[in-house]
Amino acid sequence: MSKANFEALPIIDISGLFSDRVEDRMAVAADLGKAAREVGFFYIRGHGITAGRIAGLRAAAADLFARDFDWKMGYHIGLGRGHKGFVPEGEEIYGGGKPDHKEAFDIGFEASEDHPFVVAGQPLIGGNKWPAIDGFHDAVSSYYADVFALGRKLFQGFALALGQDEHAFDALVTCPPSKLRLIHYPVDPTAEDTPGIGAHTDYECFTLLLADQSGLEVLNGEGRWIDAPPVTIDGEELYVINIGDMLEIMTAGAFVATTHRVRKVRNERYSFPLFFACDYETKIRPLPEFDPSGAKTAEYPDISIGDHMWSMALQTYRYLREKVARGELTLPENARSTNTFGQFKTLAEADRG
């Protein structure tokens, strides 16, 4: 399988990452590295997230999105600080300039008001808005803890795949702007074959996605959109993992951030991505071990991961775009537009095909 012509996503059993035997962890790392270099997307099984934990998350999300719109707007993402909470349909606009047909609720890494990152005023860092729904906090926070721990384990596997010590990246992830999104696509019997979320690469290091309906499509190197439906094997729901902008850059392009989109579907659809990121002040540049000459590093402006993520939010969310237009907020220095990483260079050709 090559990046140019893949027709389906590879499936990797990662149970060996939890083994005490380094040989088992290295074997999984080799598979992770191959998929990250050649495709940028893959499924994982043997992840250890229980069916009960996933069921609890789904029940909490269904309860939330069934509530009255005005009630949900009481937890709007623009209320208070931290950029967390309810995202109504049409709030986000990606590269194509068309609002997305979905609603969402965003949960972040929990940080207390006296955490140094919060005291320093870092956007995206802080507490969460927890809806007044019985059991919601316990179900969602427990799931977040489990899937974030899985992300840490994958990051260690990626380190091994890159020839590093498996704990080489641990210090980069202490209190990151890692967001869990509960996403709901309403029933739409009139849906046509048009995007629900516009084509994009993810800003963070990598994404762990669980969805219950088809709709996700991945752009291969020949400019064709490849379906990535939900997969269950022996009763275990598999996660979709995709490399994001940050890991592509950190590895000087060894791993690829692959463009993807969500197509509209007529059935109701729930999607739960966890965007795994490094700490806010981590600089966007290749790590020295992947760019010893510094040639590729020189191509990147001086901007942190957090500022890049914040600048993407400022250019994507309607309420933030309006604040920028009014001069209440400004883009961080050296901010890029929303379509300059990953495989966007092939997107125009794909859309014309």
Rank of each mutant, 00 (worst) to 15 (best):
K3C: 06
N5G: 11
E7K: 12
R21Y: 12
E23I: 13
D31I: 07
A36Y: 12
G40V: 02
H47D: 02
I49T: 08
L64T: 05
R67I: 08
R67H: 08
K72F: 00
G78A: 11
G85H: 03
V87T: 06
P88C: 01
I93K: 10
I93Q: 08
F105A: 05
D106G: 14
G108L: 06
S112L: 14
E113K: 15
D114H: 13
H115E: 07
Q122P: 13
W130I: 11
F136N: 00
V140I: 03
V147A: 08
F148G: 10
G157N: 10
G163D: 00
R181T: 07
L182F: 06
H184I: 03
A191W: 00
E192G: 14
T201F: 00
L208N: 05
G215S: 04
W225C: 07
I233K: 11
I233V: 12
D234Q: 11
E236L: 02
L238Y: 09
D245T: 15
E248Y: 06
F255G: 02
T259V: 08
V265T: 14
R269E: 05
S271P: 00
L287H: 04
L287V: 04
A295L: 03
A295V: 07
Y300M: 08
D302P: 04
T330R: 15
L331F: 05
K345L: 12
